[in-house]
Structure formats: C-alpha cells, structure tokens
C-alpha cells in the first residue's frame, strides 16, 4: 500500500515539477528505470510467493540500478555503449517477462 502510494507521489512530483534530465545522466536514466522496474516486478512476485523481504528488495533494487548504470557507463567508455545498453535492456526485459509470467500464474492460475 505504502509502495503504491509512494509510486503515485513520485509520478505526481515528476508531473508537477517537470525537471529536465541532466546531460550526464541522459544515457543512464532509461536503463536505471528499466532495472528498477525489474526489481519491482521481482518484488511483486516475491510478495505473491509470500517470501517478500524488505531488506532484500531494497538491496536488489539499488544494486540492479547501480549495476545497470555501471554496465552502460563501461560500454560508453569502451565505445559500445549503444550495443551494451541494448543488451542490458534485453536481459532486464527477459527477467521482467519471467517475473510477470510468475505473477500471472499466481493471479490467474494460468
């Protein structure tokens, strides 16, 4: 409940404040968002499995975001930033699909 409210508050803040993304953060923000989404779906799945743990969720959330950003940064330094961020997005997308599939099985038993 708190999580959903916080998400809504964040969205409203983003809409109201209309900040611009700093240039240095521009390549990383989308990747970070996808990584965070992955963590959130993993959390939802764990919740449905009944094994949700606050600490683990926080740690996985932060580490997901940091690792994703690090990979893209590394890719940019190596000159393969575009390809590597695509790779990260693909991997995270696969994981999100897997988590969503598990959630779906939980909710619809199908």
């Amino acid at each position: 409940m708190i999580a959903v409210l916080a998400l809504l508050v964040g969205v409203v803040l983003g809409v109201v404040l209309e900040p611009t993304v700093p240039v240095g953060l521009q390549p990383y923000l989308p990747i970070a968002v996808v990584a965070a989404l992955d963590a959130v779906f993993g959390g939802i799945r764990a919740k449905l499995d009944g094994i949700f743990d606050d600490k683990q969720f926080v740690v996985s959330f932060v580490s997901n975001v940091l690792v994703a950003g690090l990979i893209v940064y590394l890719g940019d330094q190596l000159g393969v930033g575009g390809q590597l961020s695509t790779g990260v997005v693909v991997v995270l997308g696969v994981r999100i699909f897997g988590n969503v599939a598990a959630i779906r099985r939980h909710l619809f038993r199908a």
Binding site: G14, V33, V58
Partner: peptide, 18 residues
C-alpha cells in the same frame, strides 16, 4: 517500508521524467 516507499517514489519520478 519508508525505504521501499522512497525507492518506488524515486522510480515513479524517474519514470515520468524520462
């Protein structure tokens, strides 16, 4: 819960900004 709320708020914010 506060930490989770903070993180999710951040996520929503970043999502909208992006």
């Amino acid at each position: 819960a506060a930490m989770i709320g903070l993180l999710l708020g951040l996520l929503g914010f970043a999502l909208v900004v992006q």
